[in-house]
Design a protein around this nucleic acid. Sequence first.
DNA 1: TTGTAGGCGTTATCAG
DNA 2: CTGATAACGCCTACAA
Lengths: 356, 356
Amino acid sequence: MTPNNQPGENKSITMRDVAKQSGVSPMTVSRVLSGSQTVDPELRRRVLSTTARLNYAPNALASNLARNRTEFIGVATPFKDLVGTTFFREVLTGFQTITDRDKLDFALFDCASERFNDPRELAAIYRQKKAGGLLIVAPQMHGRYLKTLAGMGVAFVVVGEYIDDEEVPSISCDDAAGIKLAVQHLLELGHRDIAYIGGPPMLGSAKRREIAYMEAMTAADIEVPAHFLQPGDYTIISGHESAQFLLTSKRKHPTAIVAANDISAIGVIEAAREFGMRVPEDLSVTGFDDLSPAHEHGLFLTTVHQSVAEIGTVAARMLLKSIESGQPLLGHVDVDVALVVRSSTGPVESAPPAVL
Amino acid sequence: MTPNNQPGENKSITMRDVAKQSGVSPMTVSRVLSGSQTVDPELRRRVLSTTARLNYAPNALASNLARNRTEFIGVATPFKDLVGTTFFREVLTGFQTITDRDKLDFALFDCASERFNDPRELAAIYRQKKAGGLLIVAPQMHGRYLKTLAGMGVAFVVVGEYIDDEEVPSISCDDAAGIKLAVQHLLELGHRDIAYIGGPPMLGSAKRREIAYMEAMTAADIEVPAHFLQPGDYTIISGHESAQFLLTSKRKHPTAIVAANDISAIGVIEAAREFGMRVPEDLSVTGFDDLSPAHEHGLFLTTVHQSVAEIGTVAARMLLKSIESGQPLLGHVDVDVALVVRSSTGPVESAPPAVL
DNA sequence: TTGTAGGCGTTATCAG
DNA sequence: CTGATAACGCCTACAA
């Protein structure tokens, strides 16, 4: 990793070289290039001219060392699970809109690699000044791990997941509001037999969605039969299985199913179709997330839209503020969601759906 | 971006601090931590002990400045187009398997942003030592742009696209071999009326695939009717349209279609089904890439598999070698492909497919 | 085996 | 407005 020289020139050009050739001191060069202080226009011209002529590029390492700063924002995410994902892309581009102003760049770390099993390794990234702050995009990370990180004075924020810990700063969409919008929508369509298919129980956001479902039903004075609360894990297959159970059970069948995310909603719709049920005539289905797959699959899923890009920009603003102020962030921030009504939901039919 | 201190401790701990508290010189600390030289076991113990006690983390900026190196590999890619992509994820994880050994990290740059309109800006990343080398994952980048980059002595390699320029190092799958495998497979199934739906003409890899199709047909002594060479742009819709044209033309209809990638192959199959044709009984279809979408869509597409992860590892090895040696890379490297026969291809039927 | 001196390339500070 | 001086925190080179 050592050499950085082109065949011919042996040492890289430094500020001193530019200074000498411009007949000024290095400080003047520094001032011109940092654009800050007032410099005599003639000197400025000379400096800029030789800078261009020598093709000089300031050494960021030296600059950052002298200024005790870092121009990288660390992004920690499990490569295998998230990098190829719409969610990740959206968070990043949202984040980017803010960090671009400060000319910050991204450093990318695979937090699922063995190396980061110990939170101290992630903290080291920060302490070694490889990154001025950390954007953590890793839903599966344990609260304990993150709490430890917070205890080590690392500037960071977790994105896309609700962490139930005051000391851990996190940003995600307003899960509760989203589910309540979905349930409310179904209630307005006349549904009362509304079942729910949940998400991975380890995820704080999944917990929030489930609780919100129960609250919304209770608020509408509807008692939820135990079997209406189905487990799930955000996969097509889990949605499929739980829907299959609900639609073939000997107990009451739902006229509508609220799935904890779009993926499992797709499984629900698949299952319904396999049983010859029409969506939405025989069964209404709602999802959650509104990322691309819902469209790609040629579905017209009524779902809760979360603005991932906005989560990214909010995260960026907060993280930058924390980095500048030196104050750690605290607690959770909810970003608004919106119900997108498409054609997987409709009014409840007078006749109950046919039992298979 | 300035402060990095926790409330209470005002300056970060340096090697000097560790040295003092261990009763040794900073050099000894350096030696212990870099693990290199021989150090008295007793001193080593003391140093390690106080390192842990003080929670010391070496400043990477200072270290890299002193050693004139950089521990970041720059990854340049258009965020919007590629970051959310299986291809990108696979390249990165493949790359990672090599860079992990050297404890290198990734710096991520959005080469589609205005900032990088000028290749000098990308070169600056390298010259400023923000990255020791560049992995460019950007199929749409112009050869001229890349040639300029090469001329500026930047250590880099382009991945996933064939760049027709000896000075520009690139790595991609062996497009020609892949298409020839597909055509050969169809020939063996008895097809002779094999049409081709191409890719974006600006892409070198698309050009190579098309040329290979022509060569394979010619080698089999089959004359290709002009309308058998259909344009396309790697999208479902382009595959759909070209297939529609081929299957409704007044001229001869193909019994098999080779699509330049999986996505357009999906469009072909959709179109065929709309015309009531069965795949593969009435029409054989092959794709190219074998990334996830082909499976996600519930298709069983016979296709050319490219090992993206391997492209990543090959790229990593080459780039690291170039960085170490200071020698620029040159020319293109092909990574092997393999035909994956699934159920979208079959023997040609005796009766020609029904004309719509 | 350990320590000393000096430099990596930049910037903060303060004197002129 | 400009320049000398002294860091920034670490490492190479040489000396002990």
